[in-house]
Design a protein around this nucleic acid. Sequence first.
RNA 1: GGUCCGGUGGCAGAAUGGUGAUGUAGCGGACUGCAAAUCCGCGAAUGUGGGUUCGAUUCCCGCCCGGACCUCCA
Length: 451
Amino acid sequence: MTTTPPEIVLHDNHTRQARPFVPLDPTHVRLYYCGPTVYDFAHIGNLRAMLCADILVRLLRARYPRVTFVRNVTDVDDRITARARANGEDIASLTSRTTDDFHKDLAALGVLPPDIEPRATHHIGDMLAMIGELIANGHAYEAEGHVLFAVRAFPGYGQLSGRSLDEMLAGARVEVAPYKRDPGDFVLWKPSEPDQPGWDSPYGRGRPGWHIECSAMAHRYLGESFDIHGGGDDLLFPHHENERAQSMCCFPKGRFANVWIHNAMLLSGGEKMSKSLGNFHTIREVIERAPAEALRLLFLSTHYRSVLDFTWDKLDDARRTLDRFYRALERTPPISDAPVPEAVMAALCADLNTPLAIAALHPLADAALAGDADASSALRAASAMLGLLGQSPDTWFRAGLDAPRIEALIAERLAARKARDFVRADAIRAELSADGILLEDNAGGTTWRRA
RNA sequence: GGUCCGGUGGCAGAAUGGUGAUGUAGCGGACUGCAAAUCCGCGAAUGUGGGUUCGAUUCCCGCCCGGACCUCCA
């Protein structure tokens, strides 16, 4: 029995169309995502892009023999400098600690690490080489210690984000630096004060502008043309537009990214997250209050191109859904490695339709609950594809609780029930319930789990 | 102001030019000493006004509402 696997279709935000994914090189798929700026704990909005990439990479790996996923770390940025100063900490210690925290958070969420995770500060030479080339070929100019990219010299500027320079000018709200030839010109290199991080360059001691690092690192690890570039849709402009402009002007034979993927923003309690509104949540904060896997399921329950509104209620719903799935695996353990069910694969291939894929899990869980071990095996395989249900049901339901004490109380309650002392039996249940432990009387005896 | 995206049952959330998934909540029932879990059943939705069409939730236009971006945010 052979069935043709469904074609992967992705919504390309450059052409604004869903298009069949055709790799530039079918033996080696290459993609780049913009990673974090490491000055503080990552927030749950950052997580969304990481998770979107994770699903995409898992799908590509299932289909292609070799996938190289590059996700950078931005470790030079004025916010980093400012935070280090405020903390009285040196920059290297701040960035390495924050990077480490970021890795821990993503690991807790089941996000697979990238194949290559380049750091901006390790690629200053690559950036300067690109800047030199852009000046040489007339796409950049020096002014007052800065090097600026000349947007008017690139006819394709604005194509990616679908806007024209003149339109942007009409709505501009920001004061334009006097040394710019065109208000849309952006910084490739800027001078550093003695107390700011800086590197020697032909333009004096300075540091890179925001966009050049991604162009330089994408080129170093993926070449002049690669398959997919992604990130949050707030990066579409200016970041991705500028990356593309730099790269295409520096390497005119390449086409930079072939497909552009952008995930929609996250809201929190119906509004954009902001510290002043009190609805700002770091990943760390959320996973201290609920299982990380519940957060993963919650995020995957909405399509990546739709706005997702985070609430604690939804997180709780996701946790209860996982309770049911883990109960199915516990009641009827998987017996074998099964292929990923076609419905799940088809959903993911249709522009990463994770909500539809998750919907396909429910009938499998129903069947597993009814005793179907094949369904249980399929449930596990499908969930693994989504990075879910990776722990044992026992861990999910009972990790970290004082089992001997609970079992002693259960034995005591059993004796009370035999004596038909339901007052005592219910008192024991209430006591455990106050500790977040739920008892379940089944035909085979009493089991327990965290509520 | 400019550009773009979106409005589907109480809530969440798919899909589709031809009887609108799935989950959750609600209600009723089975099971239970009581619960929990599980099972069975029941109601319940395409913002609004036009247009195209045999047929529109889907395509087109207007309106209302929400959101994002418009120079360093995922």
